[in-house]
Design a protein around this nucleic acid. Structure first.
Lengths: 252, 252
DNA sequence: GAGTGGTCTAGACCACCCT
DNA sequence: GGGTGGTCTAGACCACTCT
């Protein structure tokens, strides 16, 4: 049995302070910072509950509440008898967590991308509204064609606040899995968002890019994604073919 | 302060038994039974944590874990300083919890319904697959036109296993808010489900029913809903206009 | 002020996994 | 056998709500 002799309180967390956020929420933020800073890498086994509790000067139950909440959000993976691991964002199903297209067999589609184009400029009025930016703000624009088994599938337009992604506009290559890249290269974790789905008809230009006949009905996704501090980090509009693919929603 | 004198253990839950499910999960099931049996009605204030703990002979922390899990599933609503309530399916935003269409202002659309038609018969092959029914099973079919501000909006086809809804096919009137009716009249709580979204073009017949020109692109929703015991209780196909309405998804 | 849920702590035992 | 997370208990204090 471990004699829980607390040598020193180490880095104490704001405790008992009036109006402060709950301890477990502060622990959660601190652990999120360790993950997004790269101190804890995806796949790493992190210290056990008692070790973290001792280090932070709080009880094991509080650590557990934070860990459970992170596991529920898919940032950690817990295995009884083994330990707690930082979730790999590399396995396909995690990389495409916010990608809701499935094929007829119920398998998640894992798109590729090509024809990537980058540009930069002052934010337009709708861009400023969606991304909650000031009047003079600059944005980076990415357009690309997403593919499925090599075939055109989705035409995407992505808008990013320039302040969060310095230098991205000059990048020579943009990875397929953008949110993973945001986290690794800019320390920005895309945590949640909202997507509005409507339908549209392919005009001549769209039809050409997507390899369909003009007049084909398409699904249009309009999404804004937010970071861990609830700041808008991306506005994305996607025009999708839905022949032999469906957008799947879990209702709870 | 309450003197926690435990008079009698009352109805003890299987405790310590080898291989038994966790206590909090058993408490959860028991509370679900109280809700779905109608012993606790939607809107009711349920006893506080200590009272339930005393009644069941377990600790308050265990009750809390069960209550928190039910609240996370939207079966209960907890309010600090007030108490724990059985979730109402009656307020508009609860009644239409699984209805994800929003208008341009971001308000949830609350549809009406008309032209309701009822029929009954042997389940077809796709119906048996979706609803996990045996070869000779019967189903009830409902079709209706859902309206928005009086105008045609969605054409719906609903299929229900006859065993769960005895006599429904002979009903003289079908309420607009079906899931609420299922709960009140048949004790079936629709708890979760899955919806597959694709796009389709309105043919002449559809266009006529929905008041659009033939060739208009529509959104097609194909959903299966499940009850508290994970049994399929409904298959529903909806064809929706999306002019000035969008299907909104929260990404987490 | 009384009652409620929300947070935090401390300690116990169990089931599972490794070596 | 030793370490891990999973469950359960018991008790304390806080924040919120109602009257």
């Amino acid at each position: 049995m471990i004699a829980v002799t607390r040598d020193e309180p180490d880095k104490k967390i704001a405790q008992g302070a009036l109006g402060s956020r709950p301890l477990y929420a502060q622990v959660r933020d601190l652990l999120i910072a360790r993950i997004s800073s790269g101190a804890w890498q995806p796949g790493d086994l992190i210290p056990n509950e008692f070790a973290i509790a001792r280090e932070l000067g709080v009880s094991q139950g509080t650590i557990r509440k934070a860990l459970d909440s992170l596991a529920a959000d898919n940032l950690l993976m817990r295995k009884q008898g083994r330990g707690t691991y930082v979730a790999r964002h590399t396995p396909a199903d995690m990389l495409f967590r916010f990608f809701n297209f499935f094929d007829a067999k119920g398998e998640r589609i894992e798109p590729g991308s090509r024809d990537v184009q980058l540009s930069q400029g002052r934010a337009s009025t709708p861009e400023r509204q969606r991304l909650e930016l000031g009047a003079a703000a600059k944005v980076i624009r990415i357009s690309r064609l997403r593919t499925r088994a090599g075939e055109a599938f989705i035409l995407e337009t992505i808008v990013l606040p320039e302040t969060f992604f310095p230098g991205l506009a000059q990048a020579s290559r943009i990875p397929n899995t953008l949110y993973d890249h945001f986290q690794k290269a800019y320390g920005i974790t895309v945590a949640r968002g909202q997507e509005r789905l409507t339908v549209a008809l392919a005009d001549v230009h769209l039809a050409d890019r997507l390899g369909v006949v003009p007049g084909t009905p398409l699904m249009k996704l309009d999404r804004v994604m937010y970071g861990l501090q609830q700041q808008p980090v991306e506005w994305r509009v996607s025009l999708c073919r839905t022949d032999s693919a469906a957008y799947v929603v879990e209702l709870r």
